[in-house]
Write a protein that binds this DNA or RNA. Sequence first.
RNA 1: GUGGCUAUAGCUCAGUUGGUUAGAGCAUCGGCUUGUGGUGCCGAGGGUCGCGGGUUCGAAUCCCGUUAGCCACCCCA
Length: 444
Amino acid sequence: MQFETLPGFREFYPDACARRNHIFGQWRKVARAFNFLEYDAPVLEPLELYIEKSGEEIVGQLFNFEDRGGRAVALRPEMTPSLARLVGAKANGLKRPIKWFNIGEHYRYERPQKGRLRAFYQYNVDIFGEAGPGADAELIALLVQALQAFGLGSDDFKVRLSDRDLWLHMLAAEGLDEDASATVLGIIDKLERMDRSKAIERLAPVIGDEAEAFLGRIEEVIAIRDFETLTNYMQNLASEGDIADQIRIRLGEWEQLLNSLQAAGAGEFIQIDLGIVRGLAYYTGFVFEAFEASGEGRALAGGGRYDALVKKLGGPDMPAVGFAMGDVTLADLLESKGLTPTYVQSPDFIAIIGGPEARDAAMGDAALIRRMGYTIDYPLKDQAFGKQFKEANQKGARFALIYGSEEIEQGVVKVRDFSSGVEQMLPRDGLEASIPDLMQSGLS
RNA sequence: GUGGCUAUAGCUCAGUUGGUUAGAGCAUCGGCUUGUGGUGCCGAGGGUCGCGGGUUCGAAUCCCGUUAGCCACCCCA
């Protein structure tokens, strides 16, 4: 019986595993550079946790089942609810701002396709406890740097920046109430993929006869790409009153955010684009999306403010901002840009073993070398010398340690530096002292 | 959930209008006198032709179903 992997699940042979770990390594390095702390949470959670956050519809897209104790459970499709619980439970004891990150596998029961599998890794980075734009700036700067770490530049990706808060002010200025605004935001989110006539049709119930003109104004806003135009547009929209005040305050926060990002060196990556609102209702302020600047334009990462979510999931009132980046789309992009390094996992040493007596000597030295933190390998059964050298080369070893009968008799080992071809005898009882030198300088 | 394309060795692929025992390259394993290098030479293993059914004297080849993969839609936390 030959078993296959489940649809949408991946196996990582050593090469693929090395590529995956390269991605994890860069993610981790950048998060640490910003002094974010790594946390982790269970892979299996109560189903209710996800229903509470996202509604009953989510169940159709989960790996969920009943466990032996009759509990309704689900493999985690995302990290945010677990994280909100972790933070919420200890909120009063955690020093703020709380800057945390995680790299973990997530599971969604969906039809696999390009850039999307049923099991995938996500880089989750979040800040809790800071409501001001400083937190948004920190997070977006980290996002930019995390992508730059792979060798991607501003020709390769951009971060679209938008703001649900500003939209709500705008829509309020248009005379819409909260419910109507939410509906309109949902339509804006889909505008890119929707026919204009369809959009008008869907706007009509909330807007009425003027839906077409209204849509025209929305399209004008979405086309804005610079802060000056945005400011002018907003000031024309409402010049006095509460709404005008709120818009003025919000634009001040925009200015702070943009200045911080400029100062952090992320300016060239930022693209104002109010067309991004993110479908999820729980986003509350700035929202952003990193996407490929060329080709497909696929989303690489997405995130934003979710100031109300921790409370909704049973925690205290706690402002939050975060983003998530998946490994699948990122790996695809790196591959297409030729930015996937080739990984050689090769040993420092290979022992060439002449016989049983030599094997004992080699294994003793190998134990020492391994304790010193270097990599040494040797054939597990006796083989001809020629074959052993060939294998040492194929494995990419830097040095051969040759244990023949002559060497054993004299208490030495012959070292060969494969890059120069130079050989030298080393006393076996002085290896601990001579090996670091050898690793440093080689033989020439 | 809907649709399109695909499925032959570990990988990339040949395989004639349906016709004997399904092939190649790469990879793997063994050997080329147990003291020296990725190339070389010799040899070997490895396939229920995705799976099930049908048509036929005969199916990798034609038909139906099914599963999986890829792609698009839906959705996208």
